[in-house]
Protein backbone atom coordinates (compact mmCIF):
# COMPACT_ATOMS: atom_id res chain seq x y z
CA UNK A 1 0.00 0.00 0.00
CA UNK A 2 1.33 3.44 -0.93
CA UNK A 3 0.94 6.35 1.45
CA UNK A 4 -0.18 9.65 -0.02
CA UNK A 5 2.04 12.54 0.95
CA UNK A 6 1.64 16.29 1.07
CA UNK A 7 3.66 17.71 -1.87
CA UNK A 8 5.11 20.75 -0.14
CA UNK A 9 5.91 19.30 3.27
CA UNK A 10 6.64 15.79 2.00
CA UNK A 11 4.76 14.31 4.94
CA UNK A 12 2.18 11.51 4.84
CA UNK A 13 -1.29 13.05 4.79
CA UNK A 14 -2.34 11.35 8.02
CA UNK A 15 0.69 12.66 9.84
CA UNK A 16 0.22 16.19 8.52
CA UNK A 17 -3.45 16.09 9.52
CA UNK A 18 -2.47 14.99 13.03
CA UNK A 19 0.09 17.79 13.32
CA UNK A 20 -2.52 20.33 12.22
CA UNK A 21 -4.95 18.89 14.77
CA UNK A 22 -2.26 19.08 17.44
CA UNK A 23 -1.68 22.72 16.49
CA UNK A 24 -5.32 23.44 17.38
CA UNK A 25 -4.85 21.46 20.59
CA UNK A 26 -1.82 23.58 21.51
CA UNK A 27 -4.01 26.67 21.16
CA UNK A 28 -6.78 25.07 23.20
CA UNK A 29 -4.56 24.05 26.10
CA UNK A 30 -2.65 27.33 26.01
CA UNK A 31 -5.93 29.18 26.42
CA UNK A 32 -7.06 26.86 29.18
CA UNK A 33 -3.85 26.96 31.20
CA UNK A 34 -3.39 30.68 30.64
CA UNK A 35 -6.88 31.31 31.98
CA UNK A 36 -6.18 29.25 35.09
CA UNK A 37 -2.86 30.98 35.72
CA UNK A 38 -4.42 34.40 35.26
CA UNK A 39 -7.32 33.54 37.56
CA UNK A 40 -4.85 32.35 40.15
CA UNK A 41 -2.59 35.38 39.91
CA UNK A 42 -5.48 37.83 39.93
CA UNK A 43 -7.56 36.05 42.59
CA UNK A 44 -8.88 38.66 45.02
CA UNK A 45 -7.25 38.84 48.45
CA UNK A 46 -10.09 37.68 50.75
CA UNK A 47 -8.96 39.71 53.75
CA UNK A 48 -5.94 40.89 55.71
CA UNK A 49 -3.49 38.02 56.26
CA UNK A 50 -5.53 35.54 54.20
CA UNK A 51 -4.00 33.78 51.21
CA UNK A 52 -5.75 34.48 47.90
CA UNK A 53 -5.11 30.91 46.64
CA UNK A 54 -5.68 27.71 48.66
CA UNK A 55 -2.59 25.85 49.83
CA UNK A 56 -2.13 22.28 48.55
CA UNK A 57 -2.73 20.82 52.02
CA UNK A 58 -6.01 22.74 52.35
CA UNK A 59 -7.45 21.31 49.13
CA UNK A 60 -5.82 17.90 49.59
CA UNK A 61 -3.64 18.04 46.48
CA UNK A 62 -0.92 15.40 46.77
CA UNK A 63 2.16 16.15 44.64
CA UNK A 64 3.31 12.53 44.91
CA UNK A 65 0.11 11.32 43.23
CA UNK A 66 0.81 13.70 40.36
CA UNK A 67 4.41 12.43 40.26
CA UNK A 68 3.17 8.83 39.97
CA UNK A 69 0.95 9.88 37.09
CA UNK A 70 3.90 11.60 35.41
CA UNK A 71 5.93 8.38 35.59
CA UNK A 72 2.99 6.38 34.23
CA UNK A 73 2.47 8.66 31.24
CA UNK A 74 6.17 8.98 30.40
CA UNK A 75 6.58 5.20 30.51
CA UNK A 76 3.46 4.76 28.35
CA UNK A 77 4.93 7.16 25.76
CA UNK A 78 8.11 5.11 25.72
CA UNK A 79 6.04 1.94 25.21
CA UNK A 80 4.20 3.44 22.20
CA UNK A 81 7.54 4.39 20.70
CA UNK A 82 8.99 0.92 21.25
CA UNK A 83 5.83 -0.65 19.83
CA UNK A 84 6.14 1.47 16.68
CA UNK A 85 9.78 0.55 16.28
CA UNK A 86 8.96 -3.13 16.73
CA UNK A 87 6.35 -2.84 13.97
CA UNK A 88 8.89 -1.22 11.67
CA UNK A 89 11.21 -4.15 12.39
CA UNK A 90 8.33 -6.50 11.49
CA UNK A 91 8.06 -7.86 15.05
CA UNK A 92 4.27 -7.85 15.42
CA UNK A 93 4.19 -9.88 18.65
CA UNK A 94 6.66 -7.61 20.39
CA UNK A 95 4.76 -4.54 19.14
CA UNK A 96 1.51 -5.93 20.54
CA UNK A 97 3.10 -6.49 23.95
CA UNK A 98 4.40 -2.92 24.11
CA UNK A 99 1.01 -1.60 23.00
CA UNK A 100 -0.72 -3.71 25.65
CA UNK A 101 1.59 -2.26 28.27
CA UNK A 102 0.78 1.24 27.03
CA UNK A 103 -2.92 0.54 27.52
CA UNK A 104 -2.28 -0.71 31.05
CA UNK A 105 -0.20 2.34 31.97
CA UNK A 106 -2.80 4.71 30.49
CA UNK A 107 -5.56 2.94 32.40
CA UNK A 108 -3.47 3.17 35.59
CA UNK A 109 -3.13 6.93 35.00
CA UNK A 110 -6.92 7.23 34.85
CA UNK A 111 -7.19 5.01 37.93
CA UNK A 112 -4.96 7.34 39.96
CA UNK A 113 -6.94 10.31 38.65
CA UNK A 114 -10.17 8.59 39.67
CA UNK A 115 -8.74 7.99 43.16
CA UNK A 116 -7.92 11.69 43.44
CA UNK A 117 -11.36 12.73 42.24
CA UNK A 118 -13.04 10.33 44.68
CA UNK A 119 -11.19 12.04 47.55
CA UNK A 120 -12.35 15.45 46.35
CA UNK A 121 -15.95 14.24 46.08
CA UNK A 122 -15.80 12.75 49.57
CA UNK A 123 -14.50 16.00 51.05
CA UNK A 124 -16.96 18.14 49.10
CA UNK A 125 -14.18 19.96 47.25
CA UNK A 126 -16.31 20.61 44.20
CA UNK A 127 -16.93 23.76 42.15
CA UNK A 128 -19.81 25.75 43.60
CA UNK A 129 -19.97 23.58 46.73
CA UNK A 130 -17.14 25.03 48.81
CA UNK A 131 -17.85 27.48 51.62
CA UNK A 132 -15.59 30.50 51.37
CA UNK A 133 -16.46 32.26 54.62
CA UNK A 134 -13.78 32.52 57.30
CA UNK A 135 -13.07 35.12 59.95
CA UNK A 136 -11.17 38.13 58.71
CA UNK A 137 -12.85 38.53 55.35
CA UNK A 138 -13.00 42.07 54.08
CA UNK A 139 -16.54 43.57 54.36
CA UNK A 140 -16.80 43.66 50.56
CA UNK A 141 -15.99 39.96 50.27
CA UNK A 142 -18.35 39.13 53.15
CA UNK A 143 -21.19 40.93 51.40
CA UNK A 144 -20.37 39.24 48.12
CA UNK A 145 -20.30 35.82 49.80
CA UNK A 146 -23.56 36.20 51.74
CA UNK A 147 -25.41 33.56 49.69
CA UNK A 148 -22.41 31.25 49.77
CA UNK A 149 -22.15 31.68 53.57
CA UNK A 150 -25.80 30.80 54.21
CA UNK A 151 -25.60 27.79 51.97
CA UNK A 152 -22.38 26.75 53.74
CA UNK A 153 -24.04 26.91 57.16
CA UNK A 154 -26.86 24.67 55.89
CA UNK A 155 -24.39 22.16 54.44
CA UNK A 156 -22.39 21.99 57.68
CA UNK A 157 -25.54 21.63 59.79
CA UNK A 158 -26.74 18.82 57.54
CA UNK A 159 -23.44 17.00 57.90
CA UNK A 160 -23.31 17.55 61.67
CA UNK A 161 -26.90 16.30 62.05
CA UNK A 162 -26.05 13.19 60.04
CA UNK A 163 -23.01 12.58 62.25
CA UNK A 164 -24.86 13.01 65.51
CA UNK A 165 -28.23 11.52 64.46
CA UNK A 166 -27.55 8.08 65.86
CA UNK A 167 -26.07 9.31 69.15
CA UNK A 168 -28.33 9.69 72.17
CA UNK A 169 -27.79 12.73 74.45
CA UNK A 170 -26.77 10.52 77.39
CA UNK A 171 -24.07 8.90 75.26
CA UNK A 172 -22.48 12.25 74.49
CA UNK A 173 -20.53 12.19 77.76
CA UNK A 174 -18.60 9.16 76.57
CA UNK A 175 -16.20 8.90 73.62
CA UNK A 176 -15.92 9.14 70.64
CA UNK A 177 -14.65 12.66 71.10
CA UNK A 178 -15.23 13.69 67.48
CA UNK A 179 -18.97 13.06 67.84
CA UNK A 180 -19.01 15.12 71.02
CA UNK A 181 -17.22 17.91 69.16
CA UNK A 182 -19.63 17.63 66.23
CA UNK A 183 -22.63 17.85 68.56
CA UNK A 184 -21.16 20.87 70.35
CA UNK A 185 -20.56 22.61 67.04
CA UNK A 186 -24.09 21.86 65.84
CA UNK A 187 -25.46 23.54 68.97
CA UNK A 188 -23.36 26.61 68.22
CA UNK A 189 -24.95 26.94 64.77
CA UNK A 190 -28.44 27.13 66.28
CA UNK A 191 -29.81 30.03 68.24
CA UNK A 192 -30.81 29.18 71.78
CA UNK A 193 -30.41 30.08 75.40
CA UNK A 194 -27.62 29.37 77.85
CA UNK A 195 -28.00 28.16 81.43
CA UNK A 196 -28.64 31.75 82.58
CA UNK A 197 -31.46 31.98 80.03
CA UNK A 198 -29.52 34.57 78.00
CA UNK A 199 -29.90 34.59 74.22
CA UNK A 200 -27.10 32.78 72.41
CA UNK A 201 -26.34 34.13 68.96
CA UNK A 202 -25.54 31.41 66.39
CA UNK A 203 -22.13 31.43 64.76
CA UNK A 204 -21.71 33.60 61.69
CA UNK A 205 -20.63 31.76 58.49
CA UNK A 206 -17.09 33.09 58.97
CA UNK A 207 -16.90 31.91 62.59
CA UNK A 208 -18.35 28.54 61.58
CA UNK A 209 -15.80 28.23 58.78
CA UNK A 210 -12.96 28.72 61.27
CA UNK A 211 -14.46 26.20 63.70
CA UNK A 212 -14.96 23.63 60.95
CA UNK A 213 -11.38 24.01 59.70
CA UNK A 214 -10.10 23.60 63.26
CA UNK A 215 -12.24 20.48 63.82
CA UNK A 216 -11.19 18.97 60.48
CA UNK A 217 -7.57 19.38 61.57
CA UNK A 218 -8.27 17.78 64.94
CA UNK A 219 -10.60 15.01 63.71
CA UNK A 220 -10.02 14.35 59.98
CA UNK A 221 -12.53 11.47 60.05
CA UNK A 222 -15.40 13.96 60.43
CA UNK A 223 -15.05 15.05 56.77
CA UNK A 224 -16.84 18.33 57.40
CA UNK A 225 -17.12 20.67 54.40
CA UNK A 226 -14.02 22.90 54.76
CA UNK A 227 -14.15 26.68 54.42
CA UNK A 228 -11.63 27.83 51.82
CA UNK A 229 -11.41 31.41 50.55
CA UNK A 230 -11.50 31.30 46.71
CA UNK A 231 -11.95 27.54 46.97
CA UNK A 232 -14.58 27.45 44.24
CA UNK A 233 -12.27 29.24 41.84
CA UNK A 234 -9.55 26.71 42.62
CA UNK A 235 -11.94 23.78 42.19
CA UNK A 236 -13.11 25.05 38.81
CA UNK A 237 -9.52 25.41 37.60
CA UNK A 238 -8.53 22.00 38.99
CA UNK A 239 -11.43 20.03 37.57
CA UNK A 240 -11.56 21.76 34.19
CA UNK A 241 -7.84 21.39 33.44
CA UNK A 242 -7.29 17.90 34.83
CA UNK A 243 -10.72 16.73 33.62
CA UNK A 244 -10.17 17.83 30.03
CA UNK A 245 -6.73 16.27 30.09
CA UNK A 246 -8.19 13.02 31.44
CA UNK A 247 -10.77 13.04 28.61
CA UNK A 248 -7.88 13.35 26.16
CA UNK A 249 -6.14 10.40 27.82
CA UNK A 250 -9.34 8.38 27.58
CA UNK A 251 -9.73 9.24 23.86
CA UNK A 252 -6.11 8.22 23.26
CA UNK A 253 -6.69 4.94 25.05
CA UNK A 254 -9.71 4.18 22.87
CA UNK A 255 -7.67 4.82 19.70
CA UNK A 256 -4.77 2.70 20.98
CA UNK A 257 -7.18 -0.08 21.97
CA UNK A 258 -8.62 -0.11 18.45
CA UNK A 259 -5.08 -0.33 17.05
CA UNK A 260 -4.28 -3.10 19.52
CA UNK A 261 -7.27 -5.07 18.29
CA UNK A 262 -6.27 -4.39 14.66
CA UNK A 263 -2.75 -5.57 15.44
CA UNK A 264 -4.12 -9.07 16.09
CA UNK A 265 -4.87 -9.60 12.41
CA UNK A 266 -3.39 -6.85 10.22
CA UNK A 267 -0.07 -6.51 8.43
CA UNK A 268 2.68 -4.64 10.28
CA UNK A 269 3.65 -1.92 7.73
CA UNK A 270 0.07 -0.69 7.40
CA UNK A 271 -0.36 -0.58 11.15
CA UNK A 272 3.00 1.15 11.69
CA UNK A 273 1.80 4.30 9.90
CA UNK A 274 -1.40 4.40 11.92
CA UNK A 275 0.39 3.78 15.18
CA UNK A 276 2.83 6.58 14.43
CA UNK A 277 -0.05 9.02 13.95
CA UNK A 278 -1.88 7.78 17.07
CA UNK A 279 1.43 7.87 18.94
CA UNK A 280 1.88 11.54 18.07
CA UNK A 281 -1.42 12.26 19.80
CA UNK A 282 -0.46 10.14 22.82
CA UNK A 283 2.91 11.90 23.15
CA UNK A 284 1.14 15.26 22.95
CA UNK A 285 -1.17 14.27 25.80
CA UNK A 286 1.94 13.27 27.76
CA UNK A 287 3.58 16.60 26.93
CA UNK A 288 0.54 18.55 28.14
CA UNK A 289 0.71 16.68 31.45
CA UNK A 290 4.36 17.70 31.87
CA UNK A 291 3.15 21.32 31.86
CA UNK A 292 -0.08 20.74 33.76
CA UNK A 293 1.51 18.80 36.62
CA UNK A 294 3.72 21.61 37.99
CA UNK A 295 0.95 24.18 37.56
CA UNK A 296 -1.59 22.16 39.56
CA UNK A 297 0.58 20.15 41.97
CA UNK A 298 3.76 22.14 42.54
CA UNK A 299 3.21 25.88 42.11
Amino acid sequence: MTTQTSENLNLPNGKLAMWLFLATEVMFFTGLLATCMLLREAAPVPGPGLSPWPAHETVHVQPWLGAINTVLLICSSLCVLLSHRALLANQAGKARRWLGLTLLLGAAFLGVKGFEYAGKFQLGLLPGKIGESVNGLSPQREKLLQENGLSYVRDVQERLRALTATVKPEDLKTPPKEIQAAHALLQLTLDGKDEKNSYLRPLTPGQLGDQVNRLNGEFPSLHLPPAIPNGNLWASCYFVTTGIHAIHVFAGLVVLLVLFLFSLGRDSPRLAGRLEVAGLYWHFVDLVWLILYPIIYIL
Binding site: N10, L11, L20, I74, S77, H283
Partner: peptide, 19 residues
Protein backbone atom coordinates in the same frame (compact mmCIF):
# COMPACT_ATOMS: atom_id res chain seq x y z
CA UNK B 1 9.60 14.76 25.02
CA UNK B 2 8.92 16.69 21.82
CA UNK B 3 12.30 15.97 20.26
CA UNK B 4 12.34 12.25 21.02
CA UNK B 5 8.82 10.97 21.48
CA UNK B 6 7.28 13.16 18.80
CA UNK B 7 10.26 12.68 16.48
CA UNK B 8 10.84 16.41 16.07
CA UNK B 9 14.57 15.69 16.26
CA UNK B 10 14.30 13.85 12.97
CA UNK B 11 11.43 15.54 11.20
CA UNK B 12 11.77 17.72 8.12
CA UNK B 13 12.36 21.37 8.94
CA UNK B 14 9.27 22.28 6.91
CA UNK B 15 7.15 20.79 9.71
CA UNK B 16 8.36 23.58 11.96
CA UNK B 17 6.41 25.95 9.69
CA UNK B 18 3.28 24.31 11.11
CA UNK B 19 4.42 24.14 14.71
Amino acid sequence: AGANFMHLRHERRSLWAVI
